[in-house]
Amino acid sequence: MSRYIIRRLLQAIPLLIIVSVLLFALMRATGDPLATLGGRRQVRSADRERLSRLLGLDKPIGLQYLYWLVGNDWTTIDTDGDGEGDTPGQLSGVLRGDFGTSLVSRGRPAMGIILERIPNTLILMIPAEIIVIAFSLAVGVYSALRQYSLSDQVITAFSFVGYSLPIFFVALVSMTLFAVKFRQWGWPYLPTVGMFDPQVGKTTSQVLQHMVLPILSMTIITIAGYSRFVRSSMLEVIHQDYIRTARAKGLGERTVIYLHALKNASLPLVTIVGLDIPFLLGGAIVTESIFGWPGMGRLFLDHVTRADTPVVMGILMIISVAVVLSQLVTDMVYALLDPRIRYT
C-alpha cells in the first residue's frame, strides 16, 4: 500500500505541471485584465499599451507561463517602451513560493490575499458540509427503510423541489423572510449580509448569527443530491444476504442497519464527499455573494472578472493540490470500508 501511495504522489507532480499549463493558458485566453481595469469604459489605448508592457502581458504566453513558474528575476523589463529591457524583474516564481502580486489590489502578494480568505471560507463550508452529510444520512436511510411509503414519497418530492431551485432563490427567500420580514414583524431576526457587524466586530456570536442563513441555503439545495445517493445505496445492500444473516443472528435492527448496511452503502457518498472536500476551499460563489460573506468564492469571482492571473492561479493551484490529496485519501478510505478492494 505504501508503494501505491508513493506512486500516486509521484504521479501528482507531472499532473500538477500539466494542470498549471492548462489553467494558465485558459486564464490568459479568457480575459484581458487591462480592458476596463474595473471601470465603466475601455481603458485608453496608450495606457493599455504601457501597462501591458510593464506587467509583462505583451510577452508570448509561453514566456508569461515561464515567468509565473520560475520567476523573471534573471531577466529585465522594458519600462520606458524603447524595446530594450532596462529594469530587473521582481518575480521569483511559483517554484520558489512566489505567486506574484495581484493585478487588482496592485502590489499585494497573491498568496497573502488568498490565505486571508481561507479561514473565512472554511468557517462557513465545513459546518455546512457536516450538516449536509448528517442530514443526508438520516434522510437517505430513513427513506430507504420505508421505500415507497408516503413519507418516502414526500421526502423525495421535497428534496427534488430543493434540488431543482437555483440557490439564489433559496438564499433570497430565506433572507427576505428571516432577516427582513421577521424584523418588520418584531420577531427575533437574523442579520442580512456580511460575516459580522463591522460595528460590533468579529465576535463568535456575530459570526454564528451571520452563518445561519448561508448554511441553511446551501443545506437545502445540497441535501437532495446526497440523500438520493444514500437512499439508493442503502436499498442495494438492505436486501443482500449478509444483512439477512446479521438480522437472523439476532443483532438489533438498528445496529444491523447502521453498522453493516451503511458501511457497505457508503462508497458513493464517500466518493462525493471526497470530491467535495477540495472545493470547500474554493467556497461557494453564489452563496457568498448573496450573503456578502468574505470567502474564497467571492475572491475568485472578483479576481476572475478582472482576469487577475496571479490570484486566480493561486486559488486554482491550491484547489488542484487539494484535489490530488483528497482523491488519494478517498481511495484509501475505499480500502478501509471494503477490505476486498486492492490497488495494483
Partner: peptide, 20 residues
C-alpha cells in the same frame, strides 16, 4: 463610516430595508 461590501444588489435591497 463603514463602507460595507454587499456584492449582490438583491441583498443590498434587503439590507437597506432591514436598516442594516
Amino acid at each position: 463610516v463603514f463602507v460595507q461590501i454587499v456584492p449582490d444588489d438583491a441583498s443590498q435591497t434587503a439590507a437597506l430595508i432591514a436598516g442594516d
